[in-house]
């Protein structure tokens, strides 16, 4: 079946089965490999993208259920034009293997857009679905707090 979708501001049309998850449309059909496969059952958060600003696990969202504009890590910012949260990730040298970080960043960015004054507890709750096997959590926490401060303008 043919489906139209908008990803990072670009319109695409793909011909795939209706139940194909958005993740595999992004990665294998569109070649947008920034969004990662980790578990396939929304248990690790590596595949997190934003749809109209909401954080969504793309590995369990059938393409036929997609409604809204998709933003991936590649659309959030680029090496030449970083989003505030990405700059904060770099300032705090968060990543180790880095594989989970696109998902962590997309989750954190959506969370901060809704909650500009997060408590530690808020951050823990919002980020608990995103697994990092390298254990970068202490720096993720610091980067989110710092990004929140900057996005509030102080």
């Amino acid at each position: 079946m043919a489906f139209n979708l908008t990803v990072d501001g670009t319109a695409y049309s793909v011909d795939v089965p209706a139940d194909m998850p958005l993740l595999w449309v992004l990665r294998d059909e569109l070649g947008l490999t920034g969004t990662k496969y980790g578990c396939g059952i929304s248990a690790c958060g590596a595949c997190t993208v934003q749809i109209d600003g909401q954080a969504v696990r793309s590995c369990v969202l059938p393409i036929s259920d997609l409604s809204g504009e998709v933003t991936t890590i590649e659309g959030l910012g680029t090496p030449e034009n970083l989003a505030t949260i990405q700059q904060s990730w770099i300032d705090h040298q968060v990543a180790q293997c880095g594989y989970c970080q696109p998902g962590q960043i997309m989750q954190a960015a959506a969370f901060l857009a809704e909650n500009p004054f997060p408590t530690n507890q808020d951050i823990d709750t919002a980020m608990a679905g995103n697994l990092c096997r390298c254990g970068t959590y202490p720096r993720i926490r610091a980067a989110i707090k710092d990004a929140a401060r900057q996005m509030r303008g102080g």
Partner: peptide, 21 residues
């Protein structure tokens, strides 16, 4: 030192084996 892979790993541009195209 700032890690040489930090910008690519924070922007989804790092190329892992699974990203080979």
């Amino acid at each position: 030192m700032p890690r040489v892979d930090m910008v690519s790993k924070s922007t989804g541009t790092a190329q892992y084996g699974i990203d080979t195209r």
